[in-house]
Structure formats: C-alpha cells, structure tokens
C-alpha cells in the first residue's frame, strides 16, 4: 500500500489535464475503420467531380452546376473548393453527425463509459475530450476534401494564378493559403453542429439514434434557412453561414462573414456545451 500512498502524495503528476486521454481519444477515433471509411468517402467527392468534368466534352458554362464548377477546367485549384461546396449541405453534416453523435452514446453503448468514469476520467474532462475529438474530425473531414481536391485538380487540370471574385489575381501559393482558410472556415462552421451532436449523445445509450438525430437537426436547419417566412430566424441558424466563405475569395479578404460565423458557432458551442454538461454531470450511468 506504500506505493499507492506515494502516488497520492503527488496530486497530479503528468500534467494537470492528463493529455494522455485526448491522445488516446484521437488515436482510437482515427484508427477506427468507420472513421477511415468516412474520410475515404469524402475524398471521393472531389475525385468524382474532377473526373466527371475532365471526361465530359461539353464546356461547362458559368452558372451551371455548383458554384466554381465552370472554373475547374481553367484552374485545377478550384476542384477542392467546388467539392467543399458540394459536400457542405449533406455529406459533411452526415459524417459529423456520426462522429459527434457517437461521442458519449457510443461509449455508453459499448459499456466502456462506466469504466472510463470509474478510472476516473472525470465527467467534465471526458466531455471536453470528446468534443475535442469531434472537432478534430471536423478538421480532418474538411481537409480531406480540400487536399484531395487540390491534388486531383493539379493532376487533371492546368494550374496557375487564380482570378478572385473581386477580379484580382493571386499567385498559386497565395491561392493555396486561401484554400486552407476556406477549409478552416468550414471546420468552424461545423463546430456548432458538433456541440449539438455531443449534447444529443448524452441523452441516449444508443449511438445510432444520436447520430440520426444530429443529422436530422442539420437537415432541418438548412430547410428552415430557405423558408422566406422565417427570415427573422435565419441569422440564428447554425447552418446560415455554411456557404458564406465567398468573402475569403476577395482581395482584400472580408473577414465579416468569418467572424459572424465564428461568433454564431461559439454561441452554439456554449449553449449546447452547457446543456451537455447539465445533462451528463449528474446522469446515472446505467449502461
């Protein structure tokens, strides 16, 4: 017993937060076959777009198809951006719904939640780690689309200076920087949904239910966002700024939409983080 007394003499030895749990969470998340399959499916989007445009003989004219599609043949760098635009309404929320809905409910479903808590992981710490894991998945998902798009675009199409929406032209290096900024914008856009998913995940021990509910919330928000009768509600919907990254393609960059979006997502994170805490901190773990 002396060893355990020594152990208790030093209150916290390896960092006050215990980063090992976060590292373990990320390792478990990204080594999981399901996560890899979702990222591969996302990577297919830019590949399909690029191959389809390359193989089709007819010239795509401006205004046809998703935004930026007509620019792909002139500049391969637009493949990633086009793919993000295509993925934002459904594919990204779908995968984020799976990752965020699984956070707590997945552990509860396996029964590992009780073992994490008696370890003790600490309920607040576990929520923070789980949210960080979901956020890391958002980043991985958007970067997968953006990077695969850039690579396949560079392979199939010419690459050169990019003409921005404002008419200015920026260099290839600069345009890669803009692509990264857009990926970050989209990542931030998805954090609100991740927080909602985390909250829903604390309500159940059936992970599939939490995933489905999160995806339904994402779709519902987008439907409400196109109903003109609900215009007063639109600025409050977490999906309202999802496609609002066009300002990043201006010279100089307009940061308004970026900051509006970040503020809104931050609000959702605070509200649903608090709800998740309120629910999880005192919940009876009976699974």
């Amino acid at each position: 017993m002396s060893s355990s007394e020594e152990r208790l003499a030093a209150p916290v030895r390896n960092g006050s937060f215990g980063w090992a749990l976060l590292a373990s969470e990320l390792a478990v998340l990204f080594r999981r076959r399901r996560t890899i399959a979702m990222l591969l499916a996302l990577a297919l989007i830019p590949i399909l777009i690029a191959v389809a445009v390359r193989l089709s003989s007819s010239e795509v004219s401006a205004g046809q198809g998703p935004p930026f599609l007509d620019r792909i043949t002139q500049n391969g760098l637009f493949v990633g951006i086009t793919a993000l635009v295509v993925a934002i309404p459904l594919f990204l929320p779908l995968t984020i719904g799976v990752a965020a809905g699984d956070t707590i409910a997945g552990e509860a479903g396996l029964g590992t939640l009780r073992y994490l808590l008696v370890a003790p992981a600490g309920r607040v710490r576990l929520l923070l780690v789980k949210f960080a894991g979901a956020a890391a998945f958002c980043l991985a998902a958007t970067l997968t689309v953006a990077i695969t798009g850039a690579v396949i675009g560079a392979i199939l199409f010419p690459i050169g200076p990019v003409t921005l929406l404002s008419g200015d032209t920026i260099s290839v290096v600069d345009s890669i920087g803009r692509s990264v900024l857009i990926a970050l914008y989209v990542t931030v856009s998805l954090l609100g949904l991740s927080a909602i998913g985390l909250f829903i995940s604390t309500l159940t021990s059936v992970p599939v239910g939490a995933m489905a509910a999160t995806i339904v919330v994402a779709v519902t928000s987008q439907i409400l966002d196109v109903l003109p009768q609900l215009e007063w509600l639109h600025p409050w919907l977490f999906s309202h700024y999802w496609l609002g990254f066009a300002d990043i393609l201006r010279q100089p960059i307009l940061w308004d939409s970026f900051s509006d979006n970040a503020l809104l997502q931050g609000g959702y994170m605070v509200v649903f983080g608090a709800l998740a805490y309120g629910r999880f901190a005192t919940k009876d773990i009976l699974s």
Partner: peptide, 8 residues
C-alpha cells in the same frame, strides 16, 4: 486506453 483516463 482505459489507463489514460486515470490522471494519476
């Protein structure tokens, strides 16, 4: 994995 949950 479960051991990382214990901060001690």
């Amino acid at each position: 994995r479960l051991d990382t949950a214990d901060r001690f």
